[in-house]
Amino acid sequence: MEYCYASYFSNEEATTSTLNSEGWLRTGDICYIDNDGFLFIVDRLKELIKYKGYQVPPAELEALLLTHSAILDVAVIPYPDKEAGQFPMAYVVRKDGGSISEKQVMDFVAEQVAPYKRIRKVAFISSIPKNASGKILRKDLIKLATSKL
Rank of each mutant, 00 (worst) to 15 (best):
S147C: 05
K121F: 10
I30Y: 04
P58W: 00
S147D: 11
V105S: 03
K82C: 02
Y32M: 12
S101W: 04
K121E: 14
L141M: 05
I77H: 00
T67E: 15
R26E: 15
A6W: 10
D29C: 11
I128K: 01
K135A: 08
I49E: 10
N131M: 06
V105D: 06
I119A: 00
L144E: 15
I71E: 05
F124V: 02
A123D: 14
K95S: 11
F9E: 06
E111Q: 15
K135Q: 11
I33E: 14
I49M: 05
G37Q: 02
D96L: 05
R44N: 11
L141Y: 02
Y51T: 14
A6Y: 12
E22I: 02
R118H: 11
R44I: 09
I49Q: 05
D107Q: 13
D36H: 07
L72H: 08
S127A: 15
L25W: 07
I136K: 10
L64H: 04
K148A: 09
L19Q: 06
Y32R: 07
D34Q: 12
Y91H: 08
S147Y: 06
C31F: 14
G28C: 02
G37E: 04
L61K: 08
E12T: 11
S21L: 13
K52R: 15
T67H: 14
M1D: 13
I77T: 00
S133G: 02
K82Q: 06
F40Q: 09
L66C: 10
R118Y: 03
S21H: 12
R94Y: 02
D29G: 10
S17N: 11
E83V: 13
K148M: 07
N20T: 02
F124W: 02
A110S: 14
E13R: 14
S99T: 11
A63P: 02
S133V: 08
Q104Y: 06
D36G: 06
A59R: 10
K46Y: 03
R94H: 06
S101M: 03
A70N: 12
A70G: 09
I142Y: 10
